[in-house]
């Protein structure tokens, strides 16, 4: 619980001290047109997906093994 609290606190502090909001594409940062926004959205979305896939696969494996360890032995 304390670890979770510490993690959340660090995350909030990190967000607060970031001087400006982050852009996914440095080249598009100076562009204030829709194409730049489009690339930003797209890059952020595609950047997130490997983490989602990895989390789902590893989470499923973990869940199956955890459930098996709780089952009574024959």
């Amino acid at each position: 619980m304390s670890r979770l609290f510490l993690g959340v606190t660090l995350l909030i502090v990190a967000v607060l001290i970031v001087p400006t909001y982050l852009e996914a594409c440095p080249a598009c940062k100076t562009l204030d047109d829709p194409i730049g926004k489009g690339f930003n959205f797209s890059i952020l979305f595609m950047m997130a997906m490997p983490f989602v896939v990895f989390t789902v696969i590893s989470g499923t494996v973990f869940w199956h093994y955890r459930r098996a360890s709780k089952e009574p032995m024959d």
Binding site: K37, G38, S42
Partner: peptide, 9 residues
């Protein structure tokens, strides 16, 4: 991702 580039762009 490609769709988002065109849609938002």
């Amino acid at each position: 991702g490609a769709f988002l580039v065109f849609r938002v762009g």
